[in-house]
């Protein structure tokens, strides 16, 4: 009944401005045509469709948007950006939202973030990724032991997954230092790395 009143209380104009500044996009030109949603390959697992996310950003519904699962499931395929009649880089808006949510420690789909961290950990250790390492770390983090176990026999038979990490000749320290500086700076700036 009093949706309108709630809405005005939830509106956060500073949030809209921040998303526009960080993504470099003018979200006010979105007129809800739905083209982005029509072509989105991840929409079937979204809790809010991408056009709804865009509307949420316009209206400054910060919690609604940053707590959404959708921003974690976005594939960064840029189909939405390509098909937006107003030339909004919608994928850049989605990425900005994910960055903002992460930095505030809002992680609606932890398993996705765990997967990314597992990947980046192998990069930190070896300077290059290494599939078995990423998988093992991910299984430990997510306590999901059976991920892709059905693929293992064939993947191994075909030697699809590298068993030994490929390390940068001369060492991976330079990459580890990049990661370290990134973490330290995030800490200094008071955001979650």
């Amino acid at each position: 009944m009093n949706d309108a009143i709630n809405l005005s209380r939830m509106r956060d104009a500073a949030f809209t401005a921040e998303v526009e500044a960080q993504s470099g996009q003018n979200v006010s030109t979105c007129y809800q045509c739905g083209n982005c949603t029509a072509g989105c390959p991840a929409g079937f697992v979204y809790d809010r469709q991408v056009n709804q996310i865009m509307r949420g950003v316009q209206l400054g519904l910060k919690d609604e948007v940053l707590n959404s699962r959708s921003i974690w499931m976005c594939l960064s395929c840029s189909t939405c950006s390509l098909r937006c009649p107003n030339n909004i880089d919608v994928a850049a808006v989605m990425e900005t939202l994910r960055h903002m949510a992460r930095k505030e420690g809002r992680v609606a789909v932890p398993k996705v973030e765990k997967f990314w961290f597992s990947f980046l950990d192998t990069v930190r250790a070896f300077g290059r990724t290494y599939e078995i390492g990423t998988m093992a770390l991910y299984m430990m983090r997510s306590l999901r032991l059976f991920t892709d176990l059905d693929l293992a026999p064939e993947a191994l038979k075909k030697k699809k997954l590298g068993f030994r990490p490929h390390v940068i000749p001369g060492g991976a320290d330079a990459v580890a230092r990049i990661m370290q500086r990134y973490k330290e700076r995030a800490k200094r700036e008071g955001v979650r790395p």
Binding site: E95, A172, V175, Y182, A186
Partner: peptide, 23 residues
């Protein structure tokens, strides 16, 4: 390229644009 490192793939840019660009 001698001593090249991983570009960071999707995980790096999904986490942070500047981290991805540094890699």
């Amino acid at each position: 390229l001698p001593g090249w490192n991983c570009c960071g793939s999707t995980p790096a840019h999904a986490v942070d644009t500047e981290l991805s660009a540094a890699l």
